[in-house]
């Protein structure tokens, strides 16, 4: 199948180095300490953060830093066919772990000892790049909750199909069987906090694909900063500062 046309266009009309349209909204869940909706094309994700709060299970309490927990869950209707079991499968458990470890790398947990931070992520619509969207949503939700972080974490995927590096893969491209690199970075510190790759990819091409993903992450970081800034201004206005 031809994923990139001779004119250099992908199946959804994007150029190889073009991202899908992104949209974010802060404060989607009133009861949560922090929450956000993040959309990348047809992938829609909602994240909520509860905490820092008292540790539910005392045996898990850590005296030196906060306990970070994460749960990733897909809505039954999020994919083409209705999912029978949307929670507790190996994929969900793996993604939960990936998100937790990625977010732990940026949260200043030592400032919040003996407490617990819960990050819950729900996928409402899945069209490829769900783990990237989840990390971006979780970052926004953590910032909304006022949890101290070293830097924002932003994530984006890139792949290699028809001898062309592609940025921000959708479901069709993702399931084509080609290499898929998911990258998470701390944009200001210029550090990589997440790197996952499926399928074979020559090392020299990996650098190009990674560079493409880094550029995508930085573009998302700029957008997230704009959203946070707009939200802060709105809060200032409401409080009459």
């Amino acid at each position: 199948m031809e994923y990139v046309s001779p004119e250099g266009l992908r199946l959804d009309g994007r150029r190889p180095m073009e991202m899908r349209q992104i949209r974010a909204e802060i404060g989607a869940v009133s009861k949560a300490d922090g929450s956000a909706i993040f959309e990348m094309g047809n992938t829609k994700v909602i994240a909520a953060v509860y905490g820092p709060r008292e540790v539910q299970n005392r045996s898990q309490q850590i005296s030196s830093h906060a306990l970070v927990r994460c749960e990733y869950c897909m809505a039954n209707f999020s994919t083409g066919d209705r999912m029978r079991k949307s929670k507790g499968d190996r994929r969900s458990t793996e993604i939960s772990l990936v998100i937790r470890q990625t977010m732990e790398a940026c949260i200043l947990t030592h400032l919040l000892p003996r407490s617990q931070i819960d990050i819950y992520v729900q996928v409402l619509q899945a069209d490829g790049g769900t783990r990237s969207a989840c990390i971006n949503a979780a970052t926004l939700a953590l910032a909304d909750a006022g949890i101290p972080m070293r830097d924002l974490v932003t994530s984006c995927s890139a792949g290699y199909l028809n001898s062309t590096p592609l940025l921000d893969l959708n479901y069709v491209e993702d399931s084509a069987g080609g290499p898929d690199v998911t990258l998470g970075i701390l944009p200001k510190l210029d550090k990589v906090t997440l790197l996952q790759m499926d399928s074979k990819l020559p090392i020299d091409i990996l650098e190009n694909v990674m560079q493409l993903a880094i550029e995508g992450c930085k573009a998302i970081a700029n957008y997230i900063r704009e959203i946070l800034l707009a939200n802060t201004k709105q809060l200032e206005y409401r409080r009459g500062v």
């Binding site: 869940v29 009861k31 929450s35 539910q56 819950y120 992520v121 729900q122």
Partner: peptide, 11 residues
């Protein structure tokens, strides 16, 4: 009722 909806709901 996923855990995102309320602080009372836990995984």
């Amino acid at each position: 009722m996923p855990p995102i909806c309320s602080p009372i709901v836990r995984p």
